[in-house]
């Protein structure tokens, strides 16, 4: 036997075993729970069999009929979409002048906003709650949209500004010479140019807001304003003994960001690496 090629196939085997193990550990428990959402409660609690037998969709029916999961999902969508849109709009408006113009306080402002990225925000829980209440935003949909816009503003800002810094300024200068106004430049030149950066920031912001439990739990109290993560945490009580319904609901709530990620992998990856290494 040819020794080098044997060693090579041995190392290939090692590499693929490592990868397979990593994949299994990463997704195994989740996949098992997703699979269990098609089982009956009796099978789940008896712990017998990896595959559903009998196979049932009752959990999914219950998730909508009993817990009204669609209402929570809709709320979560409103927050994720609204918060993302808000954060991106505000961040674009702020990133452009802070990337292109020099004025007093500019560097301080940029440093402050970037520093906020490094804040463990849970530390701010109590004051955030207090401020939301003082502004009359507590436990309202608009309140949460505004709050998430603010939360995701620093991240979007950093991604957009570093992208803008890497762009040449020719187009804007040409437009300025043509006499275009400030906001026309932002709207007609900057936004189209920033599309890749906007897309990455959008996907990341969307997923982060979609998955938020801490602030949704802190800042809302009525059912009509709560998001799917809270519903998840409360499933066991909500459903009482309908464990299949809980697992079905969890599966659906997990699937949304997974699908977004799989569909927009490139943007997510670009966004995360841009936001972190730049």
């Amino acid at each position: 036997m040819n020794l080098p090629s044997f060693r090579q196939s041995l190392s290939t085997l090692a590499i693929y075993s490592t990868l397979a193990l990593a994949a299994l550990v990463a997704l195994g428990p989740t996949a098992w729970v997703m699979l269990s959402s098609f089982k009956t409660a009796r099978q789940i609690f008896s712990g017998s069999g990896l595959l559903p037998s009998p196979f049932t969709l009752q959990g999914y029916v219950d998730a909508f009929a009993q817990v009204r999961l669609h209402e929570y999902l809709l709320n979560t969508l409103v927050y994720a979409a609204g918060g993302t849109l808000g954060a991106l709009t505000v961040a674009t408006l702020a990133a452009y002048p802070l990337a292109r113009y020099r004025f007093a306080g500019r560097n301080t402002l940029v440093a402050l906003i970037s520093l906020a990225l490094a804040l463990p925000v849970v530390g701010l829980a109590v004051p955030e709650f207090f401020i939301m209440r003082a502004l009359g935003l507590f436990d309202t949909k608009w309140g949460l949209i505004i709050f998430y816009s603010a939360q995701l503003f620093p991240l979007s800002f950093v991604i957009l500004r570093s992208f803008l810094l890497s762009l040449p300024t020719d187009l804007e200068e040409a437009a300025l010479i043509d006499g275009a106004g400030y906001f026309r430049i932002v709207l007609q030149i900057i936004v189209p140019l920033c599309r890749p950066a906007l897309a990455t920031a959008a996907v990341v912001a969307f997923v982060i807001i979609w998955n938020d439990f801490f602030f949704a739990n802190l800042l809302t109290t009525s059912q009509e304003n709560q998001n799917a993560q809270i519903a998840l945490a409360g499933f066991r009580s909500q459903f009482r003994f309908n464990v299949t319904g809980a697992l079905a609901g969890a599966t659906l709530v997990m699937l949304v960001p997974i699908v977004v990620f799989l569909a927009l992998q490139r943007q997510v990856i670009a966004g995360l690496t841009a936001g972190s290494t730049k």
């Binding site: 109290t221 059912q223 409360g234």
Partner: peptide, 16 residues
């Protein structure tokens, strides 16, 4: 008046 904690015990409801 919808209330997520209507049927939960625990400190969340009291806090609410």
């Amino acid at each position: 008046r919808q209330n997520q904690y209507a049927n939960s015990g625990g400190p969340e409801r009291l806090q609410y």
